[in-house]
Simulated scan of single mutants.
Amino acid sequence: MSYRTQIRRKVKGVKVYSITQAILKSTKLWLPPDDEQTTIANFLDKKTAQIDQAIAIKQKQIELLKERKQIIIQKAVTQGLDPDVPLRDSGVDWIGEIPEHWEIRRSKFLFTQRKERAWKDDVQLSATQAYGVIPQDEYEEKVGRKVVKIQFHLDKRKHVELNDFVISMRSFQGGLERAWARGCIRSSYIILRSLEDIDTNFYSYLLKLPSYIKALQKTASFIRDGQDLNFENFSKVDLFIPPLKEQNEIAMFIVQQTSLTDIATELYQQQIKNLKEYKTTLINSAVTGKIKVPELV
């Protein structure tokens, strides 16, 4: 029986375990001869260093893929797909030059607040940086853990429609979140609905651009004061509006161009997971004598 298993079977408590000296004294340890201990330690030092190096290389590859993806998104969203289109100065610092036929507009004239209270059949939603605004049950499945659900006063929460955008407590870090489902969310969040036809995919990319997020951060001292972003902050950052057909084309282009990047990223992430599992298994097998450890030359 492993040392950890012995401890777990003897400790008491629910969330915070209490490990006493008596428990520690009652556990059994295996003690190889000194020369074997040295051999095992040297073997694991070498092997785990090789594994860590392989993981670091793959993590670097993931970072490079993310940078490439962001470059594709930034260029397509802010300049369009025609390399020969005439550009003009937008007059807005965070935007810079844009195709001359694109419109600049105050955010509040493209989006307005949705202030409806939660409907009776609304599911509870979670606003997440990684997955957008999704049902809490779906979020729990993705992250493999439970989240706290509100049991009372659900009628005080705000109603969200599919393809709305949500300003959450983390929007100053990661931009606005797109709603992938209808439901309700905490009342402190700001729900935005578009005032005209837009391509939601296009604005999903635009409202998470690093340059847009920096512009949001400059609108107030909310970070220092611990305040959430509000509609007034959002309204201070102008947006650009390509023709709807171009919005559609740009969004489709980004999906096509970044799909292979996403596949490669997932592959590297799986490889990293496998290496970490192998490292754990290797250490356990070596220190418990399940594998024969060779002498290092």
Results as ranks from 00 to 15, higher is better:
3 Y>Q: 00
6 Q>G: 05
11 V>E: 09
13 G>R: 14
14 V>C: 03
14 V>A: 11
15 K>L: 15
16 V>M: 07
18 S>L: 13
19 I>Y: 04
19 I>D: 06
23 I>T: 10
26 S>G: 14
26 S>W: 11
29 L>H: 06
34 D>A: 13
35 D>P: 01
36 E>S: 10
36 E>W: 04
45 D>T: 08
53 Q>P: 00
53 Q>I: 14
54 A>K: 02
55 I>N: 05
56 A>N: 12
57 I>N: 14
57 I>P: 03
58 K>Y: 07
63 E>I: 02
66 K>P: 00
67 E>K: 12
67 E>M: 09
67 E>C: 05
68 R>F: 06
70 Q>F: 02
71 I>K: 04
74 Q>K: 15
74 Q>E: 15
75 K>Q: 05
75 K>C: 03
80 G>D: 09
81 L>N: 12
84 D>A: 12
85 V>F: 01
88 R>P: 00
90 S>Q: 13
91 G>Q: 08
91 G>P: 05
93 D>C: 10
97 E>H: 07
98 I>E: 11
101 H>G: 01
101 H>R: 08
103 E>M: 00
104 I>C: 14
108 K>N: 14
110 L>I: 15
115 K>A: 01
115 K>R: 06
117 R>V: 01
119 W>V: 06
121 D>C: 01
124 Q>G: 04
127 A>I: 12
127 A>Y: 02
128 T>M: 11
130 A>H: 02
130 A>N: 03
131 Y>A: 08
134 I>H: 09
135 P>A: 05
143 V>H: 02
146 K>T: 11
146 K>I: 05
149 K>S: 07
149 K>R: 12
150 I>P: 00
151 Q>L: 13
151 Q>D: 11
153 H>C: 12
159 H>V: 13
161 E>H: 07
166 V>K: 00
166 V>Q: 01
169 M>V: 15
175 G>D: 09
175 G>C: 09
175 G>A: 12
178 R>V: 10
180 W>P: 02
181 A>D: 15
183 G>I: 07
190 I>P: 00
190 I>Q: 08
195 L>H: 03
200 T>M: 10
200 T>G: 09
202 F>Y: 15
202 F>I: 15
203 Y>W: 08
204 S>G: 13
204 S>Y: 05
205 Y>A: 07
206 L>S: 10
207 L>K: 01
210 P>V: 13
211 S>R: 04
211 S>G: 01
211 S>W: 00
212 Y>L: 06
213 I>H: 02
213 I>V: 14
218 K>P: 07
224 R>S: 11
224 R>L: 02
226 G>N: 07
226 G>T: 04
226 G>Y: 10
227 Q>G: 03
230 N>V: 02
230 N>G: 10
235 S>T: 04
236 K>C: 08
239 L>I: 12
239 L>H: 12
241 I>L: 10
244 L>E: 11
252 M>E: 11
253 F>K: 04
254 I>S: 12
254 I>T: 06
258 T>I: 13
259 S>F: 01
259 S>C: 02
260 L>V: 01
262 D>H: 09
263 I>F: 01
264 A>I: 13
266 E>H: 02
267 L>Y: 13
270 Q>H: 12
271 Q>W: 08
271 Q>N: 12
273 K>I: 08
277 E>G: 00
278 Y>H: 13
279 K>G: 04
279 K>Y: 00
280 T>A: 09
283 I>H: 01
284 N>W: 04
292 K>F: 11
294 P>W: 08
296 L>Y: 04
